[in-house]
Amino acid sequence: PGIILVPADFDKYADITYRFINICQTYSPICEVFSLDECFIDISETEKLFGGVLNIALEIKERLRSEIGDYITCSCGISHNRLLAKLASSQIKPDGLFLITRDNAYEILDKSDLMDVCGLGFALNRRLGILRIDSFPKLRSKSVEFLHKHFGPYWSLHLYNVSRGIDNSPVMPLAEIPDAKSVSRTYTTHRNLYQREGINRLVRNLAEEATAKAREMTMSGRYVGFCLRGGEDRWSGHRTLKTYINDGKVLFDLCQEIAKDWQVKAVRFCGVTLGMLVKNKYQPIPFFPTDQRRQKLIATIDKINQRFGDYTIFPAQLLGMDIIRPKVNGYFGDKSYRLRYLLREK
């Protein structure tokens, strides 16, 4: 009864993230946006230009307060690789500053829980628990052969390295992020949907967002995936096309075609995927006047929505529903899109 529900404001989050990224990029061109509020900055070649690593961290903190607001704080982690830098950032919160060196790395790891380290999640932790491995010292005591037997070739090496604070992955700036292979949107409703009209509105909403993401990346796809879940029932299907699409209405119609024989009684989850993406510059120009007009209409709608906000203009089919807004974060791997969404010109 005492809970106060505060609605999300993704436009505000995006604006603050945009300004945060700009501050971080001041200190090195090798700046990776890891999430909505996290960056990795490789200052190996630039730290001397700004008075050293500690001065950079303190300056970032001060600039966040002065350029964004006193209500913005950040915890800075400093180390010689991404794994330990992220672990360091969690040591003192909020507004902390922590340094992990080669000399104290094992000490910090050994007092940390296994899941404190990025890249070691619930599934791995559960499997390690079955083997009675619940700390980094115990994990380090296991040989590569033992880990390979229980976790296979990939995860055995990953666990071996994580337990020793080894991480050779580079910081990946935006310009080097590869193009997405697919765009997806899923949504779990707060209650079951029983009416066909409500289910169709949900599907259309997600189809519009998935194709808008593809167009934002100037891409089109020819693989369509569609799934619904409700209670114990699950339905899924896909279709591979001969031509490429990035039109929300076309994607919605294809989802309808995939689901035409499904006996759907209730829906709680919906997912839409557009895959096998390629750049639009490799696609033929529409030949028929109706297709040309449709393409111009969609381009105009995109410009309006980019200028005045998502779903300023939207399909009439979505009238009367609470439109599901795009997420700035949480997309399925299309990180390149997320960052360009944040960094596109205001």
Score class of each variant (00 low, 15 high):
Gly2Gln: 03
Ile3Asp: 13
Ala8Cys: 07
Tyr13Gly: 10
Thr17Lys: 09
Thr17Val: 02
Val33Trp: 09
Phe34Ala: 15
Leu36Arg: 03
Glu38Arg: 08
Ile43His: 05
Glu47Tyr: 14
Leu58Trp: 01
Leu58Asn: 05
Ile60Leu: 04
Ile60Gly: 05
Glu62Met: 07
Tyr71Thr: 06
Ile72Cys: 10
Cys76His: 01
Gln91Met: 15
Ile100Met: 10
Asp113Pro: 01
Leu114Asp: 00
Gly119Ser: 00
Phe122Tyr: 15
Asn125Lys: 12
Pro137Asp: 08
Phe146His: 07
Lys149Thr: 06
Gly152Arg: 03
Trp155Asp: 05
Leu159Glu: 02
Val162Gly: 00
Arg164Gly: 12
Gly165Asn: 01
Ala175Tyr: 11
Lys181Trp: 11
Lys181Gln: 15
Val183Asn: 09
Arg185Tyr: 14
Thr189Gln: 00
Arg191Asp: 13
Asn192Pro: 04
Gln195His: 11
Arg201Met: 11
Ala207Pro: 02
Tyr223Ala: 13
Gly225Thr: 10
Arg234Ile: 08
Trp235Leu: 03
His238Ser: 15
Lys242Met: 03
Tyr244Phe: 09
Gly248Val: 06
Gly248Met: 06
Asp253Gly: 02
Cys255Leu: 01
Glu257Met: 05
Ala259Lys: 12
Val267Lys: 04
Arg268Ser: 08
Phe269Gln: 13
Leu277Thr: 12
Val278Gln: 06
Tyr282Met: 06
Pro289Ile: 05
Lys296Ser: 09
Thr300Ser: 13
Thr300Cys: 14
Pro315Ile: 06
Ala316His: 04
Leu319Ala: 11
Lys327Leu: 08
Gly330Gln: 06
Asp334Val: 02
Lys335Leu: 13
Tyr341Asp: 09
Lys346Arg: 14
